[in-house]
Design a protein around this nucleic acid. Structure first.
Lengths: 347, 347
DNA sequence: ATCCCGTGTGGGAACGATGTCACAGCCTCA
DNA sequence: TGAGGCTGTGACATCGTTCCCACACGGGAT
């Protein structure tokens, strides 16, 4: 790391306040407020003068003062698990755009899957008096805490407080069932499931979808084929190596999210297995790499950007009508069939 | 999109203020403030009582009021171009972690490469009285504007206001030179450069690095091999198809960022060219897919997470000592040699 | 006894914006 | 002419917090 030195400090001067604008325009603070916000009377020539004075001074109303007075801010909090995961990044991007379109400032925190960080972030949001919060929750703690402070919450991707807070999720069960049924339809009977955990709604629903498809195909569930892997690629890769090196390996794998799919993909590559000749692979959550590798990977695609945008939209509605019944919005998913799935190898 | 209905509104009650805590503890507001902030005297038994009362009430100090009074907030703004690009997502993740560690709240906006959105975001940050801003700038406008409001700025990834504001960048020139020299060293003489634009410091430096390596190898620059592509994958892919279908195609391509590399990669795949047999590829900016595809793609890797973290750290220092000279920090990059680069095909 | 100092505590004025309220003009209509 | 209705403006209290200042109390030195 190299450091070069350059010059130049910068002069600091007091930021203009509404009072400065008032003096410059020769009117009172009240009049400036009315002219700028458009609430209340202001003669057109006066309004003109005020606007010009404000522009000349580069006046920007102080959100702190305004919020303090009005007791309601124009910012929303967004809490995501891990920005480095493209899923959450895209979700945040969607939230960001929708927030901007609705005139909200977005306060974003990456909770890094740590309960500690999540709690701190939640408290910071309460302190900021945000108008509402969108969260990809790890427990019901955040929703409960925020609700106790009267802050509207929308849970996105997964739900812990369904029934008492709004939620925006995707059709996890249907998606998982479709993906698994696709494999069954191709003739697979030994289909492994890689999943992170089944306590959350996402994992639970995907697991159920997997089971449903097997049942529908009259396939007995083999618990040895259901791998409850950890969070990261490394762990998933290790578990996949173990399983695929075994004697009685599956002919197909359904990976319940993009991280697990990456681990499985790497393991397959390392073992020199051919896809889909030796083994078929289908993933939940279509990550960019899946359409770039060879063979391309079939995946259940969720519109993640839209997921984030929808959550913020729902939050906006909730803020406007706090007393309405809570709603769970389910976005549809679709299976994209690519090259990684085919008939099982002849025995 | 399906919608289910669920029940339950929630009781709203006034948020506890410092006054409520004071009454509960039987002391004055001043004493509560001293007890909680630790500034000024407070007898230990009184402090105890106050802390307990605050905890019981679930009191969270109002950041708005505090900021209004103190005229300095504990939040920083982060402006990035496009969260959907893993580069910016990772940068934001780094910024997020560093901000949290330093006790700052992060206000993040995705400016979507639109000057309009950027200007709006900047104004929102001024209104929020953020302590400082980290930005991946598109012009010098933001830095200038924020500086005029006395808000410290750190430019990250690229610089438009070098000399007057701090910057955190990577060794673009060295990285590009190394990557190109790697190709030259393998025997390539027709090396194409895909680059977005050369007006920004990133593009300019990478271009210069490319030229330097060619010069060092006594290779005459062929302007026809320098492609100034647009922003997105689709555009880059199109330009790559054009070039690689041509009669006199290059034996190697250096793509100056991950988006351009993706476009080139897709084009190569569509044309059925073999990497590195027919053509070598090296990219600036190591994206996840580059180590997953086959063959894996050689790339100049920058520690993007660290880039974001460093920028926030630098911002923190600047906030503490506003008058010190501005500094440009250059993070080192390194070339990761993978499978996509080899000797040119025998003629 | 008086003064002074250290230790605690409370009163009250900010910070910047909003919005209610009162009121000053002016016009219209009875 | 006086009542009443508009239009337009300014004074002022308020939001929740901080922090300067005044002051009360007790003890030690004069």
């Amino acid at each position: 790391m190299t450091v070069e030195r350059r010059s130049a400090p910068l002069g600091r001067s007091r930021r203009p306040t509404i009072k400065d604008v008032a003096e410059a325009a020769g009117v009172s603070r009240s009049t400036v407020s009315r002219a700028l916000t458009g609430r209340g009377y202001a003669a057109s020539d006066v309004r003109e003068r005020v606007l010009r004075a404000a522009a000349e001074l580069g006046y920007v109303p102080d959100v702190m003062a305004r919020t303090l007075k009005q007791q309601v801010s124009r910012s929303v909090g967004v809490l995501v698990s891990d920005l480095r995961n493209p899923f959450y990044a895209e979700l945040a991007a969607g939230a960001s755009r929708e927030a901007r379109e609705r005139g909200y400032t977005m306060v974003l925190a990456d909770t890094s899957l740590s309960a500690q960080a999540e709690a701190e972030a939640a408290e910071a949001l309460v302190a900021l008096r945000v108008a509402g919060v969108v969260v990809t929750p790890n427990s019901s703690a955040v929703s409960t805490y925020l609700a106790s402070h009267g802050i509207p919450v929308v849970e996105v991707d997964r739900q812990f407080a369904a029934g008492s807070t709004d939620g925006v999720v995707v059709g996890n069960r249907v998606g998982a069932r479709t993906a698994t049924a696709h494999l069954v339809g191709l003739g697979h009977r030994r289909i492994a499931l890689f999943i992170d955990e089944t306590d959350w709604t996402t994992g639970y629903e995907r697991y159920q979808g997997y089971l449903e498809a097997l049942n529908a195909g009259d396939i007995k569930v083999d618990p040895g084929l259901v791998v409850s892997s950890g969070w990261d690629v490394a762990d998933s890769r290790r578990r996949a190596l173990d399983m695929l090196r075994g004697p009685d390996r599956p002919t197909a794998v359904f990976a319940a999210n993009n991280v697990l799919a990456e681990g499985v993909w790497r393991a397959i590559g390392e073992l020199g297995l051919r896809v889909p000749g030796d083994i078929s692979l289908v993933a939940f959550d279509d990550a960019p790499w899946m359409s770039m590798v060879s063979p391309t990977v079939s995946a259940v695609s969720q519109d993640t950007f839209n997921l984030g945008a929808t959550a913020v939209r729902r939050l906006g509605e909730r803020i406007e009508r706090p007393e309405s019944d809570s709603v769970t919005t389910v976005l549809n998913v679709r299976l994209i069939e690519r090259e990684s799935t085919a008939q099982p190898p002849a025995v």
